[in-house]
């Protein structure tokens, strides 16, 4: 009896623990998260939705009626992924262009449970964190050390990618700054010209006006 219990408890704990962060949204409310990532980076999104149960005052662990609409947008506003998933799921995508990827989710139910609260468990892992090393070790039959080295390699790749993306962004930053600089310069020159022209016009105009009025 005890033996059985002892093996069941940890399993329960693992199931319980594997869900991390959660937040609440109202039905139909849209929630977006932004991931700024280099290209060719894998993003893993795990989520689980629970519906508020007014009778028990808690959240129903499984709500088959509701689905989640998940939308992933690339930096150029192109939709990478837009689908309705069930109340629990795992989405994975790999970026093709570097930049801000917007992950939006909202429940598809509208009238049925409208106005009630949803609890969303969410976990987003990017790049090297998205790799399931237990799986890798099993598939490629790696020893501990080989696995460790594999992880190190993945990390280094991640850093390199981030670094080259950083260069790309630094370039954009510099371009913006240079454009500001140019604009300020040209505008001040133009402004000086405008001021001088206008001053000259004012003088001319007033002089002819005074002469016509015989004041000078």
């Amino acid at each position: 009896m005890f033996v059985k219990l002892a093996t069941i408890i940890p399993l329960l704990l693992i199931i319980d623990v594997s869900w991390g962060l959660y937040f609440h949204i109202a039905e139909g409310e849209r929630k977006c998260f932004i991931e700024e990532i280099p290209d060719d980076t894998t993003v893993l999104v795990n989520y689980k939705v629970e519906l508020y149960d007014p009778r028990s005052g808690g959240f129903m662990p499984s709500s088959p009626g509701i689905g989640m609409h998940v939308e992933v947008r690339e930096p150029n506003d192109r939709i990478l992924l837009s689908r309705v998933y069930s109340s629990e799921g795992m989405i994975s995508f790999t970026s093709t262009t570097p930049g801000e990827h917007v992950i939006c989710m909202y429940s598809n139910s509208t009238s049925w449970f409208s106005g009630s609260q949803l609890r969303v468990h969410l976990d987003i892992q990017v790049g090297e964190h998205a790799v399931d090393y237990a799986n890798v070790a099993q598939k490629d039959k790696l020893t501990e050390l080989q696995l460790r080295i594999r992880q190190l390699l993945d990390q280094v790749y991640q850093i390199t990618k981030e670094q080259s993306y950083q260069r790309h962004r630094e370039e954009r930053f510099r371009q913006t700054s240079e454009s500001t600089n140019q604009r300020v310069l040209w505008w001040s020159l133009l402004q000086t010209g405008v001021l001088m022209g206008i001053g000259y016009w004012q003088m001319r105009h007033l002089k002819s006006f005074f002469e016509a009025k015989k004041l000078v």
Partner: peptide, 13 residues
Amino acid sequence: DGIFSKSVELTFE
């Protein structure tokens, strides 16, 4: 289990 790590990074509006 006790030391099971949970790390999450989020950028939100």
